[in-house]
């Protein structure tokens, strides 16, 4: 499965969520499908997208938070998985696009390419719903089921190590940050 096809399959569903992505390729892909003010692309700080999503989820139980993580990024903050599992926010779905590589910086293989199992790690950390999916259909189904379950879920989607040729978009980092914060704080959000 290609990550961009997986993103396309849930792009409509994301419209009413607070979406936090990691940097680089996936941020550019989501923007290419259509940026919205409820998307925040954490363009650095590897590992912290899941922690940032947890901060939103705990601060605003009324929001549905979707974190779009990567294997390399999650491997940098495995302890954060135990924190997610400890608080188990029912309003957070944690997607990990596992392309078994650091695609955004040359495509070098991560430890998932030699067998480390992120869904297994998440389950062992205490995340109550975990699973690995390998097709766009299964991914979209797992995402919708996770939202409906209202229970913290980590969905590991195995994807091809392919992405856009460039990652810089015309959306400024601070523009994105202030737009997102304003969006979350609007009275009806």
């Amino acid at each position: 499965m290609k990550r961009i096809d997986a993103l396309r399959a849930i792009h409509d569903d994301l419209a009413d969520c607070a979406v936090v992505t990691i940097m680089g390729a996936v941020a550019a892909e989501l923007q290419s499908l259509g940026h919205r003010p409820n998307h925040f692309y954490l363009q650095h700080a590897m590992g912290l997208a899941s922690s940032l999503g947890l901060g939103i989820a705990l601060s605003r139980p009324d929001l549905d938070v979707v974190v779009i993580d990567g294997d390399g990024s999650l491997l940098m903050n495995l302890g954060g998985l135990t924190t997610l599992a400890r608080y188990q926010p029912s309003n957070l779905v944690h997607i990990v696009f596992d392309n078994e590589s650091l695609l955004s910086v040359g495509g070098f293989p991560t430890a998932t390419s030699t067998g480390s199992d992120l869904a297994g790690i998440a389950a062992a950390a205490g995340v109550p719903r975990t699973g690995t999916v390998r097709s766009v259909e299964d991914f979209a189904g797992a995402f919708r089921a996770a939202r409906a379950a209202r229970m913290l879920s980590t969905i590991v989607a195995k994807v091809d190590a392919v992405g856009p040729s460039a990652f810089v978009t015309d959306l400024g980092l601070l523009e994105n940050r202030y737009q997102f914060a304003r969006h979350l704080r609007r009275p009806s959000a």
Binding site: G47, S51, L58, R60
Partner: peptide, 26 residues
């Protein structure tokens, strides 16, 4: 108060950033 017990302090920066973007002081 919401207390978030961390595994490593750096996570706290992400927690605080999320709380701030969501309009809560931390």
């Amino acid at each position: 108060m919401t207390l978030v017990r961390l595994a490593k302090e750096e996570e706290g920066v992400g927690i605080s950033a999320g709380a701030h973007l969501a309009g809560v002081r931390s």
